[in-house]
Nucleic acid binder design. Sequence first.
DNA 1: GCCAACGTTGGC
DNA 2: GCCAACGTTGGC
Length: 137
Amino acid sequence: MMKSRHWLVKQEPDSYSWDDFVRDGGTSWDGVRNYQARNNLRAMQAGDPVLFYASGEGREVVGIAEVEKGAYPDPTADDPAWVSVRLKPVRKLARAVTLAEIRAQPALARMPLIRHTRLSVMPITASEFKAVVKRGG
DNA sequence: GCCAACGTTGGC
DNA sequence: GCCAACGTTGGC
């Protein structure tokens, strides 16, 4: 049985917002320089569902994305060990799901988003993914 | 603006 | 190899 993987990526809307992402029709998720995040990028496969979270101003999950292309060397890095993936937008949530809301839900509060606040690329479970999408409409 | 968490760097 | 100093991220 194939296990589907679900992910959450964080981005400061000041540097790259959901609207930028939609306007571009997808983007290369590069510039990640954290080992744990890199390992997560490496595990991403085309078709994996991804939640798009806006940190800083907002602090909320704003939309659903999908892995378009799995890990390849990050063109912005000197060292080819750093990787990036290509993500494309699927749809915006009807209503953004806030960090406070996620924290208040025992079923969601276990996500690394809450427990490892500085991690920018993280795996989440299928049920966490579903629960957030359900709340987002 | 402040502060906590935590990864990285550099002296020893 | 240890650990203090420092820088960055990100919540509040």
